[in-house]
Computed example of a mutant assay.
Amino acid sequence: MGHFGFSYIGLIFLLMLFIPNIIWTKKMPEGYTAEGENRILALCERMGEVLVCCCALMFSDFNLQGWTAWTGWLAAAIALMILYEIWWIRYFCSERKLKDFYSGILHIPLAGATLPVMAFFLLGIYGRVIWMLIAVLVLGIGHIGIHLQHYRNLNQSMR
């Protein structure tokens, strides 16, 4: 279920998530708008964001617990977050067009949305925190769903 206590790993993951997103607010792709987003997906995204942030910080189960078979889940989550940072660097070095923002990396589609969701899900598995897994599922439905909606709209407008 999870042990209450501060998680430094959760804080590191949140910093890896928020810092590029804060920079992005100054370097948004040309033509980006949140208009027309599905309201249910947006609600799931917002609820998921709050729940994931709370879970990441308040369960000490995410902190390094020595080297066990479960450490592989943490290593995989860290690898996905590093790949997420690489994706952001690639985006910031690009022309910053919508196609760049909705790009994939290493055959992972919509990497800006899918990588952090997958990383936090693996973190939930590592910590064995069901609340994180539920929060990430809510977040993933909303966040990936919205990005998929934008991506489909972009592809239709390019035809």
Results as ranks from 00 to 15, higher is better:
F121K: 01
Y151N: 08
G124W: 02
Y84F: 15
M118D: 02
A42W: 11
E30Y: 13
G142T: 01
E49Y: 14
L15I: 15
R152Y: 06
A77W: 01
E35K: 15
A69Q: 09
S103M: 05
N38Q: 06
S60G: 06
L137N: 05
M81W: 02
G124A: 06
Y126N: 02
W88L: 09
R96K: 15
H3M: 07
M47P: 00
E85K: 11
R39F: 02
G36N: 10
R96S: 09
L123C: 03
Q156L: 09
N38K: 08
L51I: 11
R159I: 06
K99P: 00
L64D: 05
A76T: 08
I108A: 08
R96E: 12
M58S: 10
Y126F: 10
M132E: 03
C44K: 02
Y91F: 15
A69F: 13
A119N: 04
H143E: 07
L154Y: 11
A42S: 13
D100W: 09
G124H: 04
W131M: 10
K97W: 03
A113L: 04
G127K: 01
Y32H: 14
S94M: 11
H147Y: 11
V50T: 12
G124R: 01
L123Q: 01
E85C: 13
G140E: 03
L98H: 04
D100L: 08
S103P: 02
